[in-house]
């Protein structure tokens, strides 16, 4: 029987959704595997009751002061303790979520174990002939898909994009809970987290918004974003932007939606002057309805949009805003 190790994350004191998705990814790709879930932290007493009910065979609890918040930003400590756990447990596969933690720890863990990780996987399967994992990952900014297969016989480390698998149930399992002593693996720190600075949030948070209105390169400058703000105010929406608009300095980087930037899941995502490069779509593909205004009928965004206007936003957007006002006054 193959062994899978899931590297868990804790979010707001709870087992993160992305972790539960890893559990269901493991179950669907390797249904008969032995599944372990490893938690790291400085104090796991709060998470322990929830961890002990997860649908897995084993739960590892690894506590050390150096593992506080997963050694955020530095990640030396979790890489060391997880590689030491892997040496003891010899898993066939190690799964992490493509979060800040997983996308840093995954590759470093893989290389420390003499392997190479598969980053940003959106699908996972086992090749019945080789018994090794095959992963699908978007490449060339999502313009193409690549299927990679692990070779050799070392641990197969896959970092999985959140949102690609349903979440496994949070309870109902009876795993054996094992405390793993990390003391021998922790080294003198080489880097330290000195401070965390939160961006000044204005208006509705992008990640929480039910409607997101985003502008891109097609807007041509910073001024048109004030029209988007105006519309956002009417609709109680948040304003986002493509990377091109952020890099040009038209809006702050905190507004960036995309693979590098935020992922949003509103019911309505209105994209104005955004071509829909797959880099951007990776951040809004979770939206229930994408609506596009763009003057290029060939633009990628229309592949994913449910409603669209092919035309100049300079005419279409003010008329759209005026119509929204009229509808609201009726």
């Amino acid at each position: 029987m193959s062994k899978v190790l899931i590297c868990a994350e804790i979010e707001d004191g709870r087992v993160s959704d992305a972790t539960l998705q890893l559990a269901s990814a493991a179950l669907s790709a390797m249904p008969h595997s032995h599944r372990s879930i490893a938690f790291v932290g400085d104090d796991l007493s709060e998470i322990e009751p929830a961890a002990a009910a997860l649908p897995a065979d084993t739960v590892f609890l690894i506590e050390h002061p150096a593992l506080k918040n997963g050694d955020a930003g530095v990640f030396d400590a979790p890489v060391s303790v997880l590689s030491s756990l892997c040496q003891q447990e010899d898993p066939d596969a190690v799964l992490l979520a493509r979060t800040d933690y997983g996308s840093n720890v995954g590759p470093r863990l893989a290389f420390r174990l003499g392997q190479s990780a598969a980053q940003d996987c959106i699908d996972l399967a086992v090749n019945p002939e080789s018994g090794r994992l095959a992963v699908t990952r978007p490449v060339f900014g999502g313009n193409a898909m690549a299927v990679y297969e692990f070779t050799g016989d070392g641990p197969q480390v896959a970092v999985i994009r959140p949102g690609c698998f349903d979440s496994a149930p949070l309870s109902g399992g009876f795993p054996e809970v094992i405390r793993f002593d990390p003391a021998g693996a922790i080294c003198e720190p080489r880097a330290r987290l000195m401070d965390t600075v939160a961006a000044q949030a204005e208006g509705v948070r992008l990640q929480d918004a039910d409607i997101v209105i985003s502008g891109g390169r097609g807007l041509g400058g910073p001024e048109p974003f004030s029209r988007l703000e105006e519309l956002a105010e009417l609709l109680g929406a948040a304003v986002g932007a493509s990377r091109a608009a952020c890099d040009a300095g038209w809006v702050e980087h905190e507004r960036q939606v995309g693979l590098t930037g935020k992922s949003v899941t509103p019911s309505l995502y209105l994209a104005v002057g955004i071509s829909g490069a797959s880099q951007h779509m990776a951040g809004c593909s979770g939206a229930r309805n994408i609506v596009a205004i763009n003057n290029d009928s060939e633009a990628n965004i229309f592949q994913d949009a449910r409603y669209g206007v092919v035309g100049d936003w300079r005419q279409a957007l003010p008329a759209f805003i005026a119509a929204v006002q009229d509808l609201q006054n009726d």
Partner: peptide, 12 residues
Amino acid sequence: ALPDGYQVIETT
């Protein structure tokens, strides 16, 4: 860079 701000890290 973080999605909502930044961390200050000092490294050797």
